[in-house]
Design a protein around this nucleic acid. Structure first.
Lengths: 329, 329
DNA sequence: TTGAAAGCGTTACCAA
DNA sequence: TTGGTAACGCTTTCAA
């Protein structure tokens, strides 16, 4: 690979002037500029990012920390971030933590060692000192932290909407599925729904999901109908859980949405391909990724921030696992 | 962040000896080693990867090029690779090409500028000069290239299995969905199935899918039943398409698998949550990612390779969108 | 067994 | 408007 020296040699100038044309700063005569550009073209020169990073003490890499890219919600977040970052010349180093502290710390460590320009973190441990040190800017993604830059959606509102729609459809014996205790986002949507249900004229019960994994979702769905066979409405903790519940309901011969309504959360792409297509509360994952990337970009450029905590709106996607208003039995 | 100089200062030795203990090479007295280790601990020192990379002209970063992480098949590939690379201290820089040449070249370029140690590429353009230059080792993932290291699964066998199972279930009017023309993997599974169908006592027709996107899949499913209402078996190009077909079949009031059998391809995690759970041909995506990472690791270490083209086995996952042997109408 | 110093490819300061 | 050179943090000769 050609270096700046080669270019300087070929153009008959010093590396300093090559650097100047490269970065478009300082004075450089028009003639020598073209000479240099020609040489660069001829040698197919591209600057070594590693050398740049070393000098600048900052690379054009962004660390993206995710619980698990295998969960369909996160790839969208990642894509949103990537597409945004891309345009400014930043790339992503990705790390899946599996929600394990050790893995997370390990990734954080290597992010630092690679002099990342910033970090996008969907973490369960926002209070880690690693996130408050001023090594690099951090934006929390799908998570909040008091006073820290973050992008998330309105979980309480989402939970409320789900419960309201469930009631509107006329369910009288609702099972509310509570997501993993350690996930604040899961708790928020849960408590939003709980509030509504508690003040409503409907019977309801709560079940707890151990995780968002497929296996746990399937197990939960079975338990749910075993424990509460009279359930005629399920507010699931996310779309995966909802799919599992839908699956189990159909397996038991129930008609959806006539016998039982089901509402998911997230609106992952696959949800519309379920049958019946899943009614769900949509989080704008791709846009959240974009917003977070944007915020981070501003921080990296040390531009003043107007807002530091960006809350994205949540919307109800009415498909066919819920009934119409006038569809009550 | 503490540097090697700080450590040297604190330990009262030269940076050279710190480097020696760091890399565990060359002679260093036991006493001075402990002195140095103590200093490192005290200063919470971790070597700057960027500086290392610059000197070594190789970073501990691996470029991972994917069509689209949003397609559920790829996150698994990525996780497999990540988990394997992780153990040897390598991290992933990720790039989604959307199958666009320009984006791909752009990522390849920046991978090089970041001096990646190697590249894992799920590319449609394996013949690009970028892949044959000897800048960095490359392993093709889910793709083949004559004589080049690659990890893929046996598409023809997969297609055959799908067709055989379809026939075994007794379908007589089969629609075979052909995936995008530009995807060799899609063509292979297609031609495998085609071979079987052509030599069988069954009527069949072919439909072409423009892409693997959800929207196209949904549109295709509608067209399929409009064009071939008598279809009693669909061999889909992948699980997304199969989900769409299943969806449409149920919407039309068909019984699955009694009226129509459906077979997918890939076995993405969500497929078992469909109802009825999808019968499909499984590609071991996670393992493929692992194998590819492993192969690449060997190449990076310049270890001799026994095999360079690794073909992974494909298996039929019998769930409930296909009939039993004796289940014929 | 240790240290001095060159070099990896840039950028930026200071002189010219 | 240009060039020389120190510096970024590390590794690796080469000498001592």
């Amino acid at each position: 690979m050609a270096t700046i020296k080669d270019v300087a040699g070929a153009a008959g100038v010093s590396v300093a002037t090559v650097s100047r044309v490269l970065n478009d700063n300082g004075y450089v005569h028009e003639d020598t500029r073209t000479k240099v550009m020609l040489a660069m073209k001829k040698l197919n020169y591209y600057p070594n990012e590693v050398a740049r990073s070393l000098y600048k003490r900052e690379s054009r890499l962004i660390g993206l920390l995710l619980p698990d890219i295998t969960n369909p919600f996160f790839p969208q977040l990642a894509r949103g971030a990537e597409d945004e970052l891309q345009r400014e010349g930043y790339r992503l180093i990705i790390g899946n933590s599996d929600e394990e502290l050790e893995k997370e710390l390990d990734y954080l460590q290597t992010f630092k060692q690679n002099q990342v320009a910033g970090i996008l973190a969907a973490t369960n441990y926002p209070d880690l000192p690693e996130y408050s040190g001023s090594f690099y800017p951090v934006v929390f993604l799908d998570r909040t932290k008091e006073g820290a830059p973050s992008v998330f959606s309105d979980g309480r509102a989402g939970g409320k909407i789900a419960a309201e729609e469930m009631l509107r459809g006329g369910s009288k014996c609702i099972t509310l599925v509570k997501g993993p205790d350690h996930l604040p986002t899961a708790q928020e949507r849960f408590s939003g729904a709980l509030d509504v249900l508690q003040n409503a004229d409907a019977q309801f019960q709560v079940m707890s999901a151990a995780s968002f994994s497929l296996n746990d979702a399937a197990a939960l769905a079975e338990e749910l109908f075993a424990a509460y066979p009279e359930t005629d409405g399920v507010i699931a903790s996310n779309d995966i859980a909802a799919a599992a519940v839908l699956h189990e309901a159909l397996r038991l011969g129930k008609k959806v949405p006539q016998d039982i309504q089901i509402i998911g959360y997230d609106d992952i792409p696959q949800s519309r391909l379920l049958f019946p297509p899943l009614s769900t509360v949509r989080q704008p994952a791709y846009e959240m990724g974009k917003e977070a990337a944007n915020l981070l970009l501003h921080m990296i450029k040390k531009e003043p921030l107007t807002e530091t905590a960006i809350q994205m709106p949540v919307t109800f996607i009415k498909r066919q696992t819920t009934r119409k208003d006038d569809d009550h039995e």
